[in-house]
Every structure is written in C-alpha cells, then in structure tokens.
Simulated scan of single mutants.
Amino acid sequence: MNETEQLQSLIIHIAQKLWTDKYALHKFLEVVARNDAFTELADALQRANTPPTTAAFLSRQRKSPA
C-alpha cells in the first residue's frame, strides 16, 4: 500500500467515525478537498447516502454513473 492509498484509507476511516455528525464530517471533508489529490474522494464522500465501509469505496464511486 503506497502513501496515497494509506491516506485515502485514513480519510475513509475518519469519515466513518464522523458520519453521524454531519457538521463535523462536512468540515473535515472541506479540509480534505483542499488537497487536489483527495478532492475526488472528498466529493464522493459528501455525495454518499451511507457511510463508507471499506477503502474500496472510492473505486466503487468511480464506477457509479454520475
């Protein structure tokens, strides 16, 4: 697992923990989105209707129709 994958996994883990506190989740994802490398992940997490369950979340979001 490379550094980017580790950071994505950490971001997803934190999003899982913050899921019920929508305000805190939104603020966290705003910070994440400031980094161009993680903007897509932050956007996908904000659009999600259910909390992410695994690091495979991002790959599933990429396959979903917009």
Rank of each mutant, 00 (worst) to 15 (best):
V31Q: 13
W19G: 01
T50M: 13
W19C: 02
H26F: 14
A55L: 05
Y23E: 14
T50N: 09
R47T: 05
R62N: 06
D21Y: 02
F28Q: 02
K63S: 13
Q8C: 11
L25T: 04
D36L: 07
D36F: 08
P51G: 05
I12F: 09
P51V: 06
K63L: 13
R60A: 06
T54W: 07
E40Q: 11
P65R: 11
W19H: 06
E40C: 01
A24H: 11
S64L: 15
L7D: 04
E5Q: 14
W19N: 01
F38L: 12
T50H: 11
N35P: 00
E3N: 10
A15Q: 02
S64H: 09
L29I: 13
Q61P: 00
Q46F: 12
P51L: 07
I12G: 03
N35H: 07
A42Q: 02
L10W: 01
R47Y: 13
W19K: 00
A37G: 10
L7R: 09
S64R: 13
L41S: 03
L18W: 09
T4K: 05
T54M: 04
Q8W: 03
Q6G: 11
M1G: 13
E30C: 06
H26N: 15
S59A: 15
A44K: 02
A42C: 07
Y23M: 12
K63F: 08
F57K: 03
A33E: 05
K22Q: 14
I11Y: 14
R62Q: 13
F38H: 06
N49T: 11
K22D: 15
L45H: 01
R47K: 15
K63G: 12
I12S: 04
I11E: 03
F28G: 07
R34G: 10
T53K: 10
S9P: 10
A55Q: 08
L18P: 03
Y23I: 13
T53Y: 09
E30M: 14
H26S: 15
R34W: 04
L29K: 10
A48M: 07
L45N: 00
P65C: 07
D43L: 10
H13A: 14
Q8L: 06
I11A: 05
D43W: 10
N35A: 10
A15R: 02
K17P: 00
A15M: 06
R47Q: 14
R47F: 12
E40H: 08
S64D: 15
A66I: 14
F28N: 07
Q16K: 08
T53E: 10
A15H: 00
Q16R: 10
L10K: 06
L10T: 02
E5K: 12
T50C: 08
P51I: 03
T53F: 08
Q61S: 14
Q61V: 03
A33D: 02
